[in-house]
């Protein structure tokens, strides 16, 4: 589309969109830091982390047509690895007695720890992915659900590293809102660039028709591994950020329900649409937070989750491609 055509004149150019996104994020952070309460800042942080998770899952599942439910497994892994680096050095021997001696003296800043957590998650995804991604769709779904349970079981039983079911407390609240906003910007822009680069187009080709794509010489398995590993890396990073927002980490912090909720966000947004995932994650995070008082006043715990599940079924029946399908609303895509 050329810049002057009527269809594109109502759309923002990519540069305009980038500036707008950056201004929105920076403005939001500045406002919340100046006027917001602690509750608002925490809510904003959790919402932005959900946005990153949804965008990364739309890359893994939406672009290549995989159906992985394994994000929470990689988040848990990333979180525990990061905490091993960032936990107050003085309390490590008490809380994590089985940690190798190497860790006992170090207390790194969060970005370094989270990055290592992300790398660990990506490495694990690489090892699991080479084998699991050759499976057919329905086996992959069950295998990644199994992965969540495996990781949870390990975390529960490796008492000396995780304090088991009691969970680790006193994690420094070092995930500043501006840091999370910056990461969100980077994740959105990175996935956008990927989707509209040749790698992304090849991924979309695999999603549309794997056999046809392979006939064109596209290495489908390698692309799936790439999407899986990148998604897991971002998941590991987000998993590392989260306990540094809420100060607590337990083996079931990130479980099966989170896997479902992330899939819900991706599907409602349109599998493969980055902005769709962003909007769906915003709507999900704020919507469930809005329903929480209703749930509590009626004493109907579980209501929110029922609503999410029913909405998802209805969306799939009435609008199987989600809000935007593969398209990006509002912004020019070339």
């Amino acid at each position: 589309m050329t810049a002057g055509s009527p269809a594109s004149s109502r759309r923002l150019s990519q540069l305009q969109a980038l500036v707008l996104l950056a201004v929105l994020l920076a403005g939001g952070v500045a406002l919340l830091e100046a006027f917001g309460s602690g509750y608002h800042r925490t809510l904003a942080a959790l919402t932005l982390i959900n946005v990153m998770l949804a965008v990364s899952l739309t890359m893994t599942n939406g672009f290549t047509g995989l159906f992985s439910l394994g994000h929470p497994a990689f988040m848990t892994l990333g979180a525990y690895v990061a905490i091993a680096f960032t936990y107050p050095a003085g309390r490590k021997s008490f809380a994590m007695p089985d940690l190798p001696a190497f860790f006992s003296g170090i207390e790194w800043p969060l970005p370094a720890g989270a990055l290592i957590g992300a790398i660990a998650a990506a490495a694990a995804a690489r090892i699991v992915g080479i084998s699991v991604l050759r499976l057919k769709v329905h086996y992959l779904a069950v295998a990644t659900l199994g992965l969540i349970i495996i990781v949870e079981t390990l975390a529960l039983n490796l008492d000396g590293l995780t304090r088991g079911g009691r969970g680790l407390t006193g994690i420094p609240r070092s995930a500043e809102l501006w840091l999370i906003a910056l990461c969100t910007l980077l994740v959105i822009v990175g996935c956008w660039r990927l989707k509209h680069a040749s790698v992304g187009r090849a991924m979309l080709a695999v999603r549309e028709n794997e056999m046809a794509a392979r006939c064109f010489g596209i290495d489908a398995v390698r692309l799936k591994v790439t999407a899986f590993v990148l998604g897991a890396g971002i998941a590991g990073f987000c998993g590392a950020l989260l306990p540094h927002v809420v100060a607590v980490m337990t083996p079931n912090s990130f479980g099966l329900m989170l896997a479902f909720n992330l899939v819900a966000m991706v599907v409602v947004g349109g599998q493969g649409s980055i902005l769709g995932a962003v909007f769906a994650a915003l709507a999900f995070s704020l919507g469930t937070e809005g329903l929480r008082p209703v749930e509590e006043s009626l004493g109907l715990y579980g209501l929110t989750q029922v609503v999410v599940a029913v909405v998802l079924i209805l969306v799939l029946i009435w609008r199987p491609k989600g809000l935007f399908g593969l398209d990006e609303p509002l912004v020019e895509t070339r």
């Binding site: 047509g65 159906f67 769709v137 329905h138 779904a141 329900m257 479902f260 899939v263 819900a264 599907v267 599998q271 109907l300 715990y301 579980g302 209501l303 989750q305 029922v306 999410v308 599940a309 029913v310 998802l312 079924i313 799939l316 199987p320």
Partner: peptide
């Protein structure tokens, strides 16, 4: 598509579990 089917069965499962909780 198969993925749609999966997501619907997963949603049904989540709905049943949480109706049970409610």
């Amino acid at each position: 598509p198969m993925i749609t089917g999966f997501i619907v069965t997963l949603s049904a499962s989540v709905a049943i579990q949480n109706l049970g909780l409610m």
